[in-house]
Nucleic acid binder design. Structure first.
Lengths: 255, 255
DNA sequence: TTCCAACCTTGCCCCGGGGACAAGGTCAAG
DNA sequence: CTTGACCTTGTCCCCGGGGCAAGGTTGGAA
C-alpha cells in the first residue's frame, strides 16, 4: 500500500496534484489508515496514470471523467489535437529563428518574396525599410487587396525601367523639394506610370480602403518625394486631361 | 496607421492581449488620436510580432524585455526548451495510445517486458492481474530493487519447472485451503525454491523494504495460496533446519 | 529511548495570461 | 442619421495547481 507521496512520485506529479484530483472527483478517495493517511492500492496507480496521461495531453480536468467513460473516438480526437499542437510548436520554432527579421515576422509569404526580390536592387536601407513598413501597414489593413497589388508589383520588378525609377527615387530622397533634377525623374516616372497596372484595375477596387492606396503611394516623410508626386500627377493629368479627370492614385508608387 | 484591433488581428492575438502588453511595459503606448484611440505604426507591428513570438514560445511575459535586449544565446536556449517540449508532447502521444493498457502505463520497461513474456504462459486473468499489481506496487515502493528482482524473475520464465509451478498455483487459486492436492504442489514448489535465486542474494538486501518482499511473496487474498505458503515454508525449514533457521521470504513467490 | 528529517493532514491565498462583461464613446458607410 | 462594428477603462473570473502555515506521524539512526 502506498502513501500519497509514493503514489504521486510513481505518476510523476506532486502530492498536491493528487489531492486536487480527489477534490475534483477524478480519482476516488482511498481508505485511510489509523492515523488518517490515505493508503493507495495498485488500482489507484492505474487510475491516476490514466488521469495524468489525459491531463498532460491537454484535456481540461473537468472533461477527463467523460473522456475516460467515452469511446475510442474521443481519444483519437485528443490525439489529433496533440498532433496539431506539435505542428504549431514547430512553426513557432521557425518564427523564433526569424526574431530579428521584421519582414519574415510581420509580412505574409508573398510580401516576404517581394522584399527578397527587392533587396538585390540595392536601394538604401532607409528606402527599403520605408517600403517594408508600407507593406506591413497595407497587409494589416487589407490583406487580400494587398496581396493582389503585391502580385503586380512583384512582376514590375522585372521591368528595368521600373527599377531605374526606384533607384532615382532612392537617390532623390534627401534632396530639396526645389531641386531642378526632380523634373527629369518625374518625366521618366510619368512615362512609366502610363503603362503600369493601376490600383483601379483591381477586381474589387471599390472596396479597397482609401488608406491603403494612400499608404502605398505616399511620400513617407521625404519632401522631395512629395514634390515628385505632385510633378508626376501633374504630368499624367496634362497628358490625359482630355479623356479623364486627374487621378491621384495613378502616381507611380515606390513599393 | 492602425487601430488596436487591426494591430492585434495582424499579430493573431486579441486586442485585450495588446493592452496587457502595454500595461506590463512590453510594448510602448502609442500616440492617441483626437478621440483617445491608440494609433499604431509599422514599428509597433514589428515590436508586437516579436513579443507574441516569444510569448508563444513559452517565455513568461515578465522575462520578455530581458530576452529582447539579450544576445543570441538566450534565444538559442528558448529554442532548446521548445524542442524539448515538442519531444515531450510526442512522448505523451505515445502514452495516450496506451491509455487502456495498465502495464504499459504504470510499469517501467523491464516490467512491461516481463509481463509480455508472462502472458503467453496462459495464466488466468485474475492471476496475471495480481502479478501485475504486485509489480506496480513494488516498482512504486523501490524501483531499483524491483528491477533487480525483475531481472532474475524474467530469467526464471525460461525454466519449465518454474512455469509448471506457476500453472499449479493458477489452478489452485480457488481451492479450499484443506484441499489434499495442495500437498503435491507444495512438494514441487519447495523443490524449486531450493534452487531459486532468493531475495536475500540481492546486493542491497538489507535496504529492501520489508513491504516489497511481503508484496512479491504474499498470498494476495487466496486462502489456498496462503496454505501453500505455509506448506512450502515448512518443507524448506525441515530440509535445512540443521544448517539455518526458517526463512519465510524463501517461499517461492508467484510473480 | 529519543531524536530528527521526512512524511502526512487541512486550509487558505496566490500566480499567469488573459476572457467576459459592463457602461459608455466613436467611426464609417449606406 | 442611423446602425453596427469599433474603441475606452474597469472589474471580476478562470484553470491547474504552488506555497505556506500549523500541526500530527513515521521510521531509521544514535
Amino acid at each position: 500500500m502506498l502513501t500519497i507521496g509514493q503514489l504521486a512520485r510513481q505518476a510523476g506529479v506532486s502530492a498536491k496534484a493528487v489531492r486536487v484530483y480527489h477534490a475534483k472527483g477524478l480519482l476516488p478517495e482511498p481508505e485511510r489508515d489509523a492515523s488518517g493517511y490515505r493508503r493507495y492500492d495498485a488500482q489507484a496507480v492505474i487510475d491516476l496514470a490514466r488521469i495524468v496521461t489525459l491531463a498532460q495531453a491537454g484535456v481540461p480536468l473537468a472533461r477527463i471523467p467523460q473522456v475516460l467513460d467515452a469511446d475510442e473516438t474521443a481519444i483519437e480526437q485528443i490525439d489529433a489535437e496533440l498532433r496539431d499542437r506539435i505542428r504549431q510548436l514547430q512553426r513557432r520554432r521557425v518564427r523564433l529563428r526569424d526574431l530579428d527579421r521584421p519582414d519574415r515576422l510581420c509580412l505574409p509569404p508573398e510580401a516576404v518574396a517581394f522584399m527578397e526580390r527587392l533587396r538585390p536592387i540595392g536601394l538604401s536601407e532607409r528606402h527599403e525599410n520605408a517600403i517594408r513598413d508600407g507593406w506591413i501597414l497595407a497587409c494589416a489593413l487589407a490583406p487580400d487587396v494587398s496581396s493582389a497589388i503585391l502580385a503586380s508589383r512583384t512582376a514590375l520588378l522585372d521591368d528595368p525601367e521600373y527599377v531605374a525609377v526606384l533607384r532615382d527615387y532612392d537617390e532623390a530622397i534627401d534632396w530639396s523639394p526645389d531641386d531642378p533634377r526632380l523634373e527629369a525623374i518625374a518625366v521618366t516616372a510619368a512615362a512609366l506610370a502610363r503603362r503600369m497596372p493601376l490600383p483601379s484595375d483591381l477586381p474589387d477596387f471599390r472596396k479597397v480602403p482609401r488608406q491603403v492606396v494612400e499608404l502605398l503611394s505616399g511620400h513617407r516623410g521625404s519632401p522631395a518625394w512629395k514634390r515628385l508626386d505632385q510633378l508626376v500627377t501633374q504630368r499624367l493629368s496634362e497628358a490625359k486631361n482630355a479623356t479623364s479627370e486627374p487621378n491621384e492614385a495613378a502616381a507611380p508608387d515606390r513599393s
